[in-house]
Nucleic acid binder design. Structure first.
Length: 829
RNA sequence: GCGGUAGUGGCGGAACGGCAGACGCGCUAGCCUCAGGAGCUAGUGGGGGUUGACCCCAUGGAGGUUCAAAUCCUCUCUACCGCACCA
């Protein structure tokens, strides 16, 4: 029995309670079943779900429920990426302790997720800011440390003097502090790094293993790692008795070098400035440049400025003097940190040389053209052409010259072939409170000492002050700061930096496999069964950082013997953003649609259905309030048509004789089986949920047409149709289907415990198809032909068509192209 | 700037290189109703036309490949994502 009217709220509450009571989504290892690990990126607990979350979880839930119905043992967990700046800001601005703020937010968001009817195994929830989790984050830091992958290096951070705090890049707005507007400066600090560059080559190579990743994500990672092959060589700096090393990917242009540039951070700069008559001006210039961002420095738009140091070096091949400049347009942490300037081969160098009147020498020109400085107005940057003005290499083709010059330099001992990566080591130190403390102790006698494993976690103290000028809030807790050295027992102090939250999120997918383990981050056995993640789903904005860090982490754990596979995420689905009025939903624009309101108005099933229907998952999604109405209307249509057939269904006629079907029956049956086929393929192979839903809408339309066409419906066919419609809809709209299933199909079982339906190929077959007749690619007529017609049949039928004959007239038929089932194209002149 | 992606009716979107616009929204008309922000039926890219025939145009723009292009190639414009301390 079902109610006459669809009442989503009562139904949804009822079934959510039922699933919770019956632990419907609890997962255990079951070696008799194939496993499938379906994972959505865990959220930062900002306090409320936004539509991006709703989209992410709706997609994941369909995949998880679908795979369960397909017979997989599905792991589908949820947790919280709960360390980070917003909690600390809440503490600074409103005096709320970060822990309380975070846990309250988690409670609220968990409630919202539960209201969506998501099939999570909540017993596996992980929360990165809780001791039972960050204890293992610290343990993993120690693992990295022991393997030589966690090292200290000097590096700069954004610093605001007024607030007395380090600033994140996003807190620096136009070079000023976001809170006080004071000018931001760069401050040199000793900071911890993870040596991700040790894995650069493997991170690059193994992209080939990721067949289930979008090509664009792999391309972005490839470019981010940025492998290049080139030449490293040095210029002698006679006045300083030093060498200045440079790296270039264009050794073919080496004879065109007319200056060398270094950034203010370059180690040679101090020596260049010492006893320099222009020291004061140069220092002022360095200070200014030091505070500009990498994007500004590498932009070819922004102005290239520099100062000649007055110091010269010697070109290793020509012996000519070359000026050394300090500039704002090179990066200090790529290559050797110094760059050779070739005005005619690089547009940035061209602009710089033009501005400062530096000499230009043409050393490469196109094969069929002679370049002249008189007519050139920009650099010749093509990787093609012939060398000129290049001593014995003159006349050589660019591609050959590259190798020849490197060989020559190596032969003469002047330089060497070098592979470089754009990828930099991962700076993991944060001078903040709300993160996992780095488990290091500094002892005056023993130096840097790891906190022993059995003393983990290093707990976050609660008696800290924010923004009092200390490098890190943790330094303001006397109790935290002072400790005894684990080695010698003498007085020592703790590291006061915490870890980048990206570390917490680089291994959480492993913890889900064994979330309550107190002896290890996870057991090998649990992870061997569940890992790797079969389907990972999350925003495209994570295409590089999070996904690259996670890949790096897993490879280190593999090398440490903790896991036995190479990549954490076998398949990746990157979802697009949710937009409103063409733009990102944001509070400042005021176009935010609250999921909570949508749930309150229509219920979870409508919200889930709409967000899956409105666009394919990888594309951006334009939110439409009217579109939501449409989805709600569809669910009402489903409800009414099932209600209409309730008495027929109550007879429980579960079969029928296919030989006794009339045309209306056959049409409905064909529609049903075509829909099963379409939905199965769309969900399983392409994740095209929008077209899967549209085909189910067509099926419901066909059921209405059938209702009107037949006074006496075929009870068996109706039963089959309704039953399968509910099964197909179940992963998308789990509550309404559960209610209808219990009401008209089987009150003892859950629709979510059923097998996914199969279609009958014979039911889809049609006898005749309509094809298009074209002349010279233009549609001229249509023709109904037997579905089995061959190419030869089609050609004969097409050429016999009266209208076609008339249109061809006296023209000569040159060619006839036949595509069975689709068209015939007659080429006639 | 560099790297990546996307542009199709009034709107969201369909379309193995093979009938452009499925499905939904919106709109129009009719039916039903005391009533409707409910439901049902039909229509709905633009232009022409003998107005259920038929013809032409149309997938950001310009070229190209092909019997055939929204789809492949080149250039270009626009929007969005990432750029290493937001997560």
């Amino acid at each position: 029995m079902i109610e006459e009217k669809y009442a989503p709220h009562a139904i949804e509450k009822k079934w959510q309670q039922y699933w919770e009571d019956h632990k419907t989504f609890k997962t255990e290892i079951d070696k008799n079943k194939p496993k499938s690990y379906v994972l959505e990126m865990f959220p930062y607990p900002s306090g409320n779900l936004h539509m991006g979350h709703v989209r992410n979880y709706s997609i994941g839930d369909v995949v998880a429920r679908f795979r369960t119905m397909k017979g997989f043992n599905v792991l589908h967990p949820m947790g919280w990426d709960s360390f980070g700046m917003p909690a600390e800001n809440a503490a600074i601005q409103h005096g709320i302790p970060p822990k309380k703020w975070t846990l309250d937010n988690i409670a609220n968001m968990r409630r919202q997720q539960k209201a969506m009817g998501l099939s999570y195994d909540w017993d596996r929830e992980v929360t990165t800011c809780k001791e039972d989790y960050y204890r293992w984050t610290q343990w993993l830091f120690e693992l990295f440390y022991k393997r030589g992958l966690a090292v200290k290096k000097r590096s700069s951070a954004n610093w605001c003097d007024t607030c007395g705090t380090v600033l994140a890049n996003e807190q620096v707005i136009d070079g000023k502090c976001w809170r006080c507007g004071h000018e931001v400066v760069k401050k040199q600090l000793d900071q911890w790094f993870f040596k991700i560059t040790d894995y650069a080559e493997e991170l690059l190579d193994d992209l080939a293993l990721l067949k289930g990743w979008p090509e664009r994500v792999k391309t972005m990672q490839r470019n981010w790692i940025g492998k290049s092959e080139g030449l490293e060589f040095s210029f002698d700096v006679p006045s300083l008795h030093e060498k200045l090393a440079v790296y270039t990917t264009r050794p073919d242009t080496i004879y065109g070098v007319t200056f060398v540039v270094v950034p203010p951070e370059h180690p040679l700069v101090e020596k260049l400035l010492k006893d320099n008559p222009k020291e004061k001006e140069l220092r002022a210039f360095c200070d200014k440049v030091r505070n500009t961002s990498d994007i500004e420095r590498t932009s070819s738009e922004s102005e290239k400025v520099g100062m000649y140091t007055g110091v010269d070096c010697i070109h290793p091949l020509t012996g000519h003097k070359v000026h050394i400049w300090i500039t704002n347009y090179v990066l200090y942490d790529y290559g050797t940190g110094a760059v050779m300037g070739v005005p005619t081969g690089d547009q940035r160098d061209w602009m710089f040389a033009t501005k400062y009147g530096i000499e230009k020498i043409i050393t490469l020109q196109p094969k069929d053209q002679v370049l002249s400085l008189d007519t050139m107005d920009h650099a010749y940057e093509d990787h093609d052409g012939v060398l000129v003005n290049s001593a014995q290499f003159t006349g050589m083709e660019m591609n050959k010259a590259m190798g020849a010059i490197i060989d020559y330099m190596e032969e003469k001992g002047l330089g060497k072939r070098k592979i470089n990566y754009r990828l930099r080591d991962w700076l993991i130190s944060r001078q903040r409170y709300w993160g996992a403390p780095i488990p290091i102790i500094y002892c005056p006698k023993c130096g840097e000492v790891l906190v022993p494993e059995d003393q983990l976690p290093v707990r976050l103290p609660e008696d800290v002050k924010f923004g009092d000028g200390s490098m890190s809030p943790l330094a303001t807790s006397e109790e935290y700061l002072h400790c005894t050295c684990p080695k010698c027992g003498g007085p020592a102090r703790r590291e006061t930096d915490t870890m980048d939250t990206f570390i917490c999120s680089s291994w959480y997918y492993l913890r889900y496999t064994d979330p309550h383990n107190e002896k290890a981050p996870f057991s090998k056995e649990a992870n061997a069964y569940w890992g790797p993640v079969d389907q990972y789903i999350g925003g495209i904005e994570h295409a590089i950082l999070h996904l690259l860090y996670s890949r790096f982490f897993l490879k280190v754990l593999r090398d440490a013997g903790l896991v036995d596979y190479d990549e954490p995420f076998t398949n990746l689905l990157t979802q697009g953003m949710v937009l409103k009025d063409g733009g990102k939903m944001s509070k400042s624009v005021g176009n935010v649609v609250s999921p909570e309101e949508i749930l309150a108005k229509y219920g979870a099933d409508t919200a889930r259905l709409f967000i899956l229907f409105a666009a394919p998952p990888e594309r951006e999604l334009e939110w439409s309030d009217q579109g939501v109405d449409g989805s709600f209307r569809f669910l009402n249509r489903v409800w009414r048509i099932v209600y209409h057939f309730e008495k027929v269904l109550a007879q429980q006629v579960t079969s029928y004789d296919t030989a006794k079907l009339d045309d209306a029956d056959k049409d409905l049956r064909r529609a049903l089986h075509a829909t099963i086929k379409k939905v199965s393929e769309d969900v399983e192979e392409r994740f095209n949920f929008n077209t899967a839903i549209s085909s189910m809408m067509e099926l419901v339309n066909a059921m209405y047409a059938y209702k009107d066409a037949k006074k006496e419906p075929n009870a068996g066919l109706i039963y089959e149709t309704v039953k399968n419609l509910l099964l197909l809809l179940a992963p998308f709209v789990p509550h309404i289907t559960e209610e209808l299933w219990h009401g008209v199909i089987n009150e003892k079982t859950s629709v979510h415990a059923q097998k996914w339906p199969a279609y009958d190929p014979a039911a889809i077959k049609v006898d005749n198809v309509e094809i298009v007749l074209q002349i010279n690619g233009k549609n001229r007529d249509r023709l109904t032909v037997p579905a089995a017609a061959t190419k030869a049949d089609l050609e004969k039928l097409a050429l016999a068509d009266e209208k076609i004959k008339k249109l061809i007239g006296t023209a000569k038929v040159l060619k006839v192209i036949c595509v069975p089932g689709r068209l015939v194209n007659i080429v006639a002149r």
